[in-house]
Every structure is written in C-alpha cells, then in structure tokens.
Write a protein that binds this DNA or RNA. Structure first.
Lengths: 124, 124, 124, 124
DNA sequence: GTGGTCTAGACCACG
DNA sequence: GTGGTCTAGACCACC
C-alpha cells in the first residue's frame, strides 16, 4: 500500500486516506478481492491513530468500495461507488477548476492536467 | 449576487460561500472593483449569521481576491488568488476525477463536463 | 504636507495620518506654530472622508501636539506629547522587534534600521 | 505559558495574545515542537472566550508559526514568520520611535531600550 | 451606515 | 478530549 499522508494538511487525515485508496481503486492498482491492510497495520505504517483508519475504512465501506468482515480484515469489493452525489462532485470540480484559473493557469494547461490524471485512471 | 447555500451540507457554510464567490470572480461575473453586498445584507439574504459571512469575506481577503475596508464595505480587487498550493489543487482534482470514474461516468463524459465548466470560466 | 496613506492597509486611515504627522513633528519638519491644512483641505488632498481627518486631528489634540481653534484651523503647539503610555510604547517596540527577528533580519541589521530612523528624528 | 492580557486595552485581546506568543517564540522560550495550551485551557486561564483564543491561534497558524491539528492540539512549528510586510514593520518601528522621542526620551535612552529588548530575543 | 471584536453556549468533526 | 463551526446578540471602531 503506497499511501502518503500529510499530518500538517488542512484536509483531515482520514479523508486523505479515503482519497488515496479511492484513487488506487479507480486506477486499478487495487482490484476486486484485494485485501487491505488491517486497521492496526495501516495505523502503525502511517503513524496515526487506530480510530483514524477505522473511520476511513467505514467511509469506504459506506460507499460500497470495500467490505469489512469482522475479524477477517477488509477487502476491495467493487469499482462502483454508490451514487455519490453527482451534484456535489460537480461542485467540487467547478470549485477546483475556478481556483486553478485564479491561480493563473491557462486553460490549455488545465486541460492537459485533467487529461494526464484521467490517463492514470481506468475508465469502465 | 446569486449565491445558493445548503445548510445541510457537510461543507461549512462559510466555505460554500467562498467557493461560490471565487467561482463568480473566476467567471468574470464579479469584476475588479465590483462591490460585494454588505456583511449584514448577505447574511440576511442567505439567512445565516453575520459572523459566518464575515468569516467568508476574511478568507477571500486573505487570498487577495477582495479588499475589505472598515466602514466602507468590501469589493473585488483582483482575479488572482495567492499562490494556492498547486499540489493541493492537483490532489483535489485527482480525487474528484477518481470519484467520477468510480461513479461510472465514461471518460468522454468527464471530459465534456470539464470542458463545459471551463467554458464558463474566463481564463486569463 | 507630504503625507501618503494607503486605503488598502489594515491600519485605520486616521491612524496612518496621526502616525505621519507625529513623525513630521518629531523630525522637526513641522515646528511649533506651523499651521496644519484645514480639515477640508487635507480631506480633499488625500481623497478621504472629512470625519477621518477630524478624528486624526482630535487624537493629536488629545496628545497635546496640536491645537485646534474653532474657525481658525489647527497648528502645531509643542513637540512634547502628553505622557503617552510608556508601557504601551514598550510593548509596541517589543512586538515589532520580535516580528523583525522572526522575519529573519539579523540583529545587526535591526540595529542599523533603528539608528537610521533615529537619525531622522530630532531628539530633544 | 506566562501571558498577560489587558481587557481594557484598545488592542484586541486576540491580537495581544498573538503578540505575546510571537515574542515568546522569537525569544526561544517556546521552541519548535513545544505544544501550546489547548484552546479551552488558555481561554480558562485568561478568562476569555474560547473563540478568542481560537482566533489568535488561527492567526499564528496563518503566519506559519504554529501548526494546529484537529483533535490533537497546537504546537510551535517554526521561528520564521511568513514574509511579513517589511515595509509595514518599518512604518511601525518609525512610528513607535517617533512617539518615544515626543515622550521626551533622549536618544541614548531609546537605544538602550532597543538593545535591552533585542538582548531578550534570540536572533537567528 | 459600514466592518471588527467578543461573549455564551451549542453541536459537530477529528484523532 | 481536541479543535471547527455556527448562532444570537452585544458593543465598539471606522468612514
């Protein structure tokens, strides 16, 4: 599991973890059935609190991306997230793009950026 | 000012407001020099507390997008946000794109979505 | 009157004005008896509200630095301010020096800075 | 934490607190990694509202001097403030020195004062 | 009139 | 238990 977190970031640690794992699943790096590290293991690896990992796993479970079997660890179940709020995702996309524009990036560069990221992801 | 907020959202209200205003500036709807509604006015319009708006304005001021003058209201100053962490923005973009993929959207549709949003924004 | 103000500054305009005039008096540029511009005149020159200038003059009058004669303008009365809170001044000095240190300026450079400013001022 | 505030002062309480903490950091009394009191703790100690402390901490965080981690308290991160406006600092210094001169302090005494304060600060 | 600060108290999010 | 956000309401500072 190649996960990097930044404890200093304003983004909650548990969310950094869900973001990373979600991306790994979307990229196909983590396939259906792949077992995830145990909560204890990952907590030790990342040097964070057990509850933090537990929260992250619970979120991913809620999205239907992983299944947690009591006493038997967690594993990737599917690449289909539950109907994440499309509207929320669009808002998030819109806000990020606006910030990139305000940061001075020309439109062409933003499109390249999006294309590059999409190349890493395995579309259905 | 056409701002819509969702009090039920998990995103803080003040942040929803900064997101909306940032987008309006990036779109050119709010131009340099355009005065913003007074804190009290916007608070009344949106049905939220005055301090919530004040917080939102202070954030935007910190980003250099608006200027607040005591006793004289606030106005848009620039279309350039401060050096927002490009790395953070990229992470945000990556995460959103991954979620769109996992939501089942085909790559072409995502690209259309991005293009549509970019069309609304006035690149520098 | 060579006064420059910055309407964008976080420091209140009236205080920028008192700071400037106080410095001009301490430097001897404005001597005892020198008439100050009328409130109207200075307000027009600086492009600010009449009340702002009036407030600034009132503060300086409170410190005993200028005298305001109704209908006859204001003039410098003395170079001795009333017992400004020495403790407050020391706190202000301490805070500013701390910020200069945190800004990375070496001690020697700060001393040069202080010496340079003092050279401009006419000690009693 | 030896912080003294004056509720009667015209300087906002949260700013008195940032000034004090900034000075403690510049003096080396608070070193990198040193944990700050919790928001609640300091609020109780100083007899002010919790939000007032939170505001002060947020300002210091914005300057890069401390790091706040949700659910895990705050700690000193660095002795370098962000590029504080050198020009603003110089103006502040100039104004304070002018007031000291007008208060009647001879130049030599002011220099001693500055030297004394600098001696307390640990230059980089 | 404007924004700035502060309080008291509540509830939520995070680790 | 930590910090984050929000409210309602007050008072002050500024223009």
């Amino acid at each position: 599991m190649f996960i990097a977190i930044d404890p200093e970031s304003r983004i909650p640690i548990y969310q950094q973890i869900t973001d990373e794992i979600r991306t790994l699943i979307a990229r196909g790096t983590l396939r259906e059935g792949t077992p995830l590290p145990t909560v204890r293991q990952l907590a030790a690896d990342l040097g964070v609190n057990l509850n933090t990992i537990a929260t992250a796993y619970r979120v991913l479970q809620g999205e239907g991306l992983i299944s947690i079997r009591h006493g038997a660890g967690a594993a990737v179940t599917s690449r289909r997230a539950t109907e994440s709020n499309h509207e929320d995702l669009r808002k998030s996309l819109r806000s990020t793009l606006a910030q990139l524009i305000l940061a001075g990036l020309p439109r062409t560069e933003i499109i390249s950026l999006v294309a590059a990221e999409l190349r890493e992801l395995k579309a259905k």
